[in-house]
């Protein structure tokens, strides 16, 4: 296996040739906020827009999940323009996320909390208007509850269900602000061919998919 050495945040690291900067950083213990990235996915979604980093020689910040490592590359995950974009993206996500951590089962394990901590941003955004969607919660499954209001549309659940497990119960529907993860024809999850494996709950970074209390 050919490796490439590069510098991330002043630290010399090595990564497999062809690897993306995001994984190179994470594997070396350097955290870059991310939600939609999947190591094994054939296609990079590049949808959450949180993993911006600065690369020496590039004018604009780039997303770490799409940037391939190069020998001698100098990456700065804490550059001001990269952080600015990541913070704006995060605040935008939070502007349509109901922040009620105390009553959320994901409290403590929620990646949004982790990202907020990393970026030094509050969970409740003051800069933007609160735009909640008020969608119905689906608790039809015997195993888990799906609250689309807390969903950040990262697509991890869709990928695991369709690509990894070959079931394909979940998918994206609608466009723009209405975009939502749902079942075919919006049927309740219990009636949509779900096998109650709960893998989607495991990969969900937020409290959108949570196990029912036993």
């Amino acid at each position: 296996m050919k490796t490439v050495s590069l510098t991330i945040d002043g630290e010399k690291v090595t990564a497999r040739q062809g690897e993306k900067v995001l994984w190179a950083a994470l594997d070396n213990g350097i955290y870059i906020p991310n939600l939609c990235a999947l190591r094994d996915a054939s296609e990079i979604p590049a949808a959450c827009r949180l993993c911006f980093v600065e690369v020496e020689g590039k004018e604009q910040p780039v997303t770490a999940c799409t940037e391939t490592v190069e020998p001698g590359m100098v990456v700065n995950t804490r550059g001001p323009s990269a952080l600015r974009l990541a913070r704006t993206a995060f605040e935008l996500l939070m502007s349509s996320h109901p922040v009620d951590c105390a009553h959320c089962p994901a409290n403590g394990s929620c990646e949004l909390q982790k990202i907020a901590h990393h970026l030094g941003t509050k969970l409740k955004t003051r800069r933007f208007r609160k735009l909640l969607r008020e969608l119905p919660v689906d608790s039809s499954s015997p195993v888990f509850i799906y609250d689309p209001n807390k969903c950040v549309l990262c697509g991890r659940c869709i990928w695991i269900c369709r690509e990894r497990l070959g079931i394909g119960v979940l998918g994206f529907a609608h466009r723009g602000f209405e975009r939502v993860v749902t079942t075919f024809a919006d049927e309740p999850i219990a009636e949509s061919g779900c096998r109650d494996c709960g893998e989607c709950v495991v990969v969900c970074p937020t409290g959108a998919l949570t196990f029912k209390e036993q």
Binding site: L92, R129, L131, G176, R179
Partner: peptide, 22 residues
């Protein structure tokens, strides 16, 4: 553009919506 946004990425889905509201 807000109506025609596919909704995949955060900036376009939520950013244009915020601008539109303002």
């Amino acid at each position: 553009t807000q109506r025609e946004s596919c909704g995949k990425c955060t900036f376009c889905r939520l950013g244009t919506k915020q601008m539109l509201e303002v």
